Simulated assay, not measured.
Amino acid sequence: MKTALIAVCAATLLLLSACNTVKGMGQDLQKAGEKIEGAAKK
């Protein structure tokens, strides 16, 4: 579980560094939230 959390955090940082606009950042955060939610359901 700890490894999965580290992987999700790393992916979130990559997504956030890739966005150039406020709208893009919102979309990236939404996608990251969906991935965290999916990981929590497993």
Rank of each mutant, 00 (worst) to 15 (best):
A32D: 00
A18P: 00
L14A: 09
G24V: 06
L14N: 04
C19P: 01
V22N: 08
Q30N: 12
A40W: 06
Q30F: 13
K31I: 11
K31C: 02
E34Y: 11
I6V: 14
G24Y: 03
K42Y: 11
G26K: 06
G38K: 15
T21L: 09
Q30C: 01
A10D: 01
M25G: 08
C19M: 13
T21K: 10
T3N: 15
S17T: 11
K31S: 11
V8K: 08
T21A: 06
A40E: 14
T12P: 02
L15S: 15
A4E: 10
K2S: 05
Q30W: 05
A10S: 02
E34Q: 14
T12M: 13
K2T: 09
C9T: 11
N20M: 10
T21P: 02
S17Q: 08
E37G: 14
L15H: 00
C9P: 03
K31H: 09
L5Y: 03
L5S: 08
I6A: 12
T21M: 07
V8N: 02
K31A: 15
I36Y: 01
L16Y: 04
A10M: 07
N20D: 13
L13F: 00
I6S: 11
V8S: 03
Q27C: 04
V8R: 11
T3M: 09
A32V: 04
V8Q: 10
S17W: 14
G38N: 15
C19T: 10
I6T: 01
E34N: 14
S17C: 07
V22M: 06
T21E: 09
K23W: 08
A39W: 05
G33Q: 04
